[in-house]
Design a binder for these strands. Structure first.
Length: 488
RNA sequence: GCUCCCAUCGUCUAGAGGCCUAGGACACAGCCCUCUCAAGGCUGGUACGAGGGUUCGAAUCCCUCUGGGAGCGCCA
């Protein structure tokens, strides 16, 4: 390890950032939809690579065929791209180390498995799942760590032949060395060391012939030239296992950055209720990708900038040295804030496209532009446009109770005057001024009844632009209706 | 149970022994602006989990405890 990579303090982590192009990867298993926690890991990995001019790899870890499927894989690609990430190598774009789906890399794994075997570091294990779980339970009950008991570790050739003859399927285990210490320097946690005696022999190939995570994941990182593995904290204590394999095979070990997990507001795992918080769900709710990015990049990573970060600014602001160690809670209130920012930062065209599905067809360009500009500050999600579409382009909706109150407060005479002035077809400012003169009202007392009568609400976008879009006859009709209500 | 990780406002966080009377952002409350809401501006309340050390001085370093989390899977 180059000396400048040693140690773990922030300054050195900064050095790591600026001096070397990093090769990072995101390695999801396609066994479910992309969750927020994973999305954050992907984002951070992506930023680390892009920031240093390195490469970002997408590798699909689908060795467990029963849990993986192509629908989830496609959904993963979609959601990642929606988030704004792109990758230099991956199942769908190829690359020098193709294939990038682990199911398709079995031949590669077999080669490395053979090397491990030749070194005497593997052995077949004939224990059944039932036996293993029983053994685990017993150990737990006895207050001991539930590790593999080593039942098959020292089987001789005859004993092995016997199991084979009995038709017992064999998994392959890695022979963990005794009395050693595995050390590494974590980018976020600093130096770590683990005793191999605390690690039980673990399975690297299942009875069905597929390789297990500890093995294939480590091998692929090495083979694909990954130099920084940025992943969840939950892998921290798994790391020595992977280091042991890499060591045994004389493969280069990456640097590891274990970021704290994302948890829910209740402090518990981000999953059950937040199962509604997969990227796809957020997207369906109408959240903008930039909002999600801005929120995620500040979870477990502190930004120098408090405000909105566009793509370039986010890249500039990102720094491995500012990755945090403590678990972060997902707080939807903060996401909502970034959503508002995201809406504000949309271009006019993008904003119109965003709410397009709720807009009536056949609007002129200028109607569209006026409407969008007027309504934008009041919209957080596309569906929020519906209310104002109804007010402006549709039939009057039911009066909100506060609106009815405001109308009654103003009185029938107010609306009688208002109708008269409106019928003269003056521009908005002039109209309001004259209504004010005629009714001796001003300020809120003048605008509120008009707003209430015309929009049915006591709050909403600026009145003037809205009124230019509503047919004059419709406006006077609504005012007359208000007049009736007020005199009733 | 064993091993490991973590601990600053309600939330995200700044903080690498004196710049800390603990800063910012979100949220909340109030005021201003304003035709309303939103936006914007200003103001306010709220935090170093506890106890011991080390030191002239600790949010910061050490120890213990407490609380949370992860791993110990033929899941990844």
């Amino acid at each position: 390890m180059p000396p400048f990579l040693a140690g773990s303090c922030a300054r050195q982590r900064s050095l790591l950032m600026t001096s070397t192009p990093l090769v990072t990867r995101f390695a999801p298993s396609p066994s479910g939809h992309l969750h927020l926690g994973n999305a954050r890991t992907a984002l951070l990995s992506y930023l680390a690579a892009r920031k240093t001019g390195g490469r970002f790899i997408l590798r699909v870890e689908d060795t467990d065929e029963s849990r993986s499927n192509d629908v989830f894989m496609q959904s993963l690609f979609d959601n990642l791209r929606w988030l704004g990430l792109d990758w230099d190598e991956g199942p769908d774009v190829g690359g020098p180390q193709a294939p990038y789906r682990q199911q398709q890399r079995r031949a590669i794994y077999e080669g490395w498995l053979a090397k491990l075997d030749a070194a005497g570091l593997t052995y077949p294990c004939y224990c059944s799942p039932a036996e293993l779980s029983l053994s685990r339970k017993r150990q737990l009950a006895a207050g001991k760590p539930p590790r593999y008991a080593g039942t098959c570790r020292e089987l001789n050739a005859a004993q092995q032949a016997d199991r084979v003859a009995r038709g017992l399927p064999a998994a392959l285990r890695f022979r963990v060395p005794t009395a050693q210490t595995v050390s590494f320097d974590d980018v976020v946690h600093g130096s770590q060391s683990f005793a191999t005696d605390d690690i039980g022999d673990f399975i690297i190939r299942r009875t069905d012939g597929s390789t297990a995570f500890f093995f294939s994941n480590a091998i692929d990182d090495a083979l694909m030239g990954v130099t920084l593995v940025l992943r969840g904290d939950d892998h921290l204590t798994n790391t020595p296992r992977q280091l042991l394999i890499l060591q045994a095979l004389q493969l280069p070990a990456p640097r590891y950055a274990h970021v704290a997990l994302l948890i829910g507001m209740d402090g518990a795992k981000l999953s059950k209720r937040e199962g509604a918080m997969s990227l796809g769900d957020l997207r369906a709710l109408g959240y903008l990708p930039g909002a999600v990015r801005n929120h995620l990049v500040r979870l477990g990573h502190s930004c120098v900038t408090d405000g909105w970060l566009d793509d370039a600014a986010m890249l500039a602001d990102f720094d491995l040295a500012r990755l945090g160690r403590a678990a972060a809670r997902f707080d939807e209130a903060q996401l909502l804030h970034w959503q508002k920012e995201a809406v504000a930062h949309l271009s006019d065209e993008a904003f119109r496209d965003w709410i397009a599905e709720h807009l009536p067809s056949g609007l002129t360009g200028s109607q569209l532009a006026t409407f969008a500009a007027a309504v934008r500050p009041n919209i957080v999600f596309p569906r929020d446009a519906m209310q104002w579409v109804a007010v402006v382009f549709g039939e009057p909706t039911a009066l909100a109770p506060e609106a009815a109150d405001a109308i009654k407060e103003a009185g029938a005479d107010f609306f009688a005057s208002a109708v008269q002035v409106f019928e003269r077809g003056l521009d908005f400012r002039q109209t309001v001024r004259e209504i004010g003169q005629a009714t001796l009202r001003k300020g809120p007392g003048l605008y509120m009844p008009l707003r209430a009568a015309i929009t049915g609400e006591t709050h909403g976008p600026e009145l003037a632009p809205l009124l230019t879009l509503i047919p004059a006859a419709e406006i006077t009709a609504r005012l007359s209706r208000a007049q009736q209500l007020a005199s009733a």
